[in-house]
Design a protein around this nucleic acid. Structure first.
Length: 505
RNA sequence: GGCGCUAUCGUCUAGGGGUUAGGACGUGAGAUUCUCAAUCUUAAAACACGGGUUCGAUUCCCGUUAGCGCUACCA
């Protein structure tokens, strides 16, 4: 391996929708493998499906990849407008002439042939095979048509597809995560290379064909992709053989499943990279999680890795072949982990969009105050879009709801609660200036001494009156936020206003 | 139906012919706290089944079962 040419891998998505976590993991593993081995990673756009491919998806995909922290050595959308590379074009729609040239070569060498079978005929073959419990493969009927028949069909304008003539031997390949995989010859039939086209116009090449031509021409040494391609691989191996190309190494990554053990899809909630980003997941958390989904550290213990660390220790040999269930709980844990490590300024910038309307009302610079708010509520969230709900006690005080809340009502009904509240309210009424933690602490001590009420009975009613909830952050941090926040024009009520509303004075 | 892939705690995984089968998430308990979150301590929790091979299989082989994928002139 060392004496061989440089390792080259690729990520080849089709721009027909949002990139989801499965594809992202494939991209990540490709990238990690390239970085680990000093190889090259390239991006190729599989846009042969003109109907479904859209430019905006390509742009989104490039953005998603960059967001995850991945970069590539060749292909469209490189950082800082770097050139695409010497093996282009990197969009399949721009490589049609290349495929046509190769098809002509195969045809002239007798390694491929024109198949005039109609869809109906093919369908009939399949039905028969199924009825006889045989593999449903093409019979090879058009394999050895004589030239007179071919000419006649051609002049008659019969549409034809181009099929590869597969040699009658087992098709095997090496898979870095599964070992040797072999398919018996009778289970692999001559694959279509080019779809039939009416008249003499050139047909459109099929995926299995173009992907192979591209991989070979782009010097791809390791094909790392989803395991849904395993069954395609023997056909691709046959194509490599027909051209006399070296068959690359393969690594088929297992499927990512939902909690119901079915293939992960939109049904299971957020699955696109963009949606994770919108929900306020940190890219390093998603990357770390995806790396762990199907791969484990050599020590069997380490769970947290930065991208750079992964690039140093990742190996395809340690990738697990079995399907993995996507576990949001563990992703959340990693996200909380990285939130703790993240730079506060960065977090503030990321959190801001979730408060954009509130903060826009500010009549004084809210940045410092906002930063403190974040340090208070950040430990309580799994992802950033949960922040506003955690800040509701500060932003959205509602005395009516506080009293009516069924969880609060029994606590407030207690005689002790009424006493505490009365004491607290009277102090608030006569107090001038903000209620600082020191002032608050003094009051609570006084009330405790005056009423003999302590602990939960003492604090709960006050907490409810002040925040509407019987649980929440420490008063020491909460009170300054409320008091200072009330002067920023953000619509935040002060302690006095809250007590007035709550006690109905 | 055919072909292929897969099978260790609920989940992600380590391990591998003889182990107290390890770690993490989650869950339970405890500590702390007015409470919640965070944090710390701690507990419970797994080798799908049946045959081989072997002195000995969770580990190797075969089969069964289950799940998934492919079975297109989709990608």
């Amino acid at each position: 391996m060392t004496a061989e040419k440089k390792i080259r891998v690729r990520f080849a998505p089709s721009p027909t929708g949002m990139v989801h976590v499965g594809n992202a993991r494939t991209a990540l593993y490709n990238w990690l493998f390239a970085r680990r081995t000093g190889g090259e990673f390239l991006l190729r756009i599989e846009d042969t499906d003109l109907e479904r491919s859209e430019a905006r998806y390509e742009a989104q995909l490039i953005e998603d990849l960059h967001w995850l922290g991945l970069d590539w050595d060749e292909g469209p959308g490189r950082l800082n407008g770097a050139p695409e590379g010497d093996f282009g074009p990197y969009r399949q729609s721009e490589r049609l002439d290349i495929y046509a040239k190769h098809t002509a070569q195969l045809l002239s060498e007798g390694k491929a042939y024109r198949c005039f079978c109609t869809p109906e005929e093919l369908e009939a073959e399949r039905k028969l095979a199924a009825a006889e419990h045989r593999p449903q493969v093409y019979s090879g009927r058009c394999r050895n048509l004589n030239s007179a028949t071919i000419e006649a069909n051609l002049t008659a304008g019969k549409p034809f597809a181009v099929r590869l003539k597969i040699e009658d031997h087992p098709l095997r390949f090496h898979d870095l995560v599964r070992g040797e995989v072999e398919f018996a010859p009778e289970t692999v039939s001559d694959p279509i290379l080019v779809r039939s086209a009416s008249g003499t116009s050139a047909g459109v090449p099929v995926y299995n064909y173009v992907v192979t031509v591209d991989d070979a021409l782009m010097g791809i040494t390791h094909v790392i992709r989803g395991d849904d391609h395993i069954s395609n691989t023997p056909k691709q191996v046959a194509i490599y053989e027909a051209f006399g190309w070296k068959v690359p190494e393969f690594a088929h990554l297992s499927t990512i499943l939902g909690a119901d053990r079915e293939r992960l899809s939109k049904r299971h909630g957020a699955t696109s990279i963009a949606s994770f980003r919108e929900m306020g997941y940190l890219p390093e958390a998603l990357v770390n999680y995806l790396a762990l989904l199907g791969w484990g550290a050599e020590d069997g213990k380490t769970e947290t890795f930065t991208l750079d660390e992964l690039a140093r220790v990742f190996s395809l040999e340690r990738v697990t072949p079995s399907p993995a269930v996507f576990d949001f709980d563990k992703l959340n844990w990693l996200n909380r982990h990285y939130i703790k490590l993240a730079d506060p300024q960065r977090l503030a910038a990321l959190a801001q969009p979730y408060f954009i309307e509130r903060l826009a009302r500010a009549t004084a610079p809210p940045e410092g105050w906002f930063a403190r708010l974040l340090t208070l509520i950040l430990p309580a969230v799994d992802h950033l879009d949960q922040l506003p709900a955690k800040a509701a006690a500060i932003f959205d005080y509602n005395a009516e709801e506080a009293r009516a809340n069924p969880e609060n009502a029994p606590l407030l009904a207690a005689e002790s609660a009424q006493k505490v509240l009365a004491e607290f309210a009277s102090r608030v009424r006569t107090h001038l200036g903000p209620v600082t933690p020191e002032v608050f602490k003094g009051w609570m001590n006084e009330i405790k001494a005056a009423t003999g009420i302590k602990g939960k009975e003492l604090f709960h009613p006050v907490r409810i009156a002040l925040t509407g909830a019987h649980s929440g952050p420490e008063f020491d941090k909460l009170l300054p936020l409320i008091e200072e926040g009330s002067s920023l024009g953000l619509g935040i009520l002060s302690v006095r206003q809250r007590i007035e509303q709550f006690t109905g004075v």
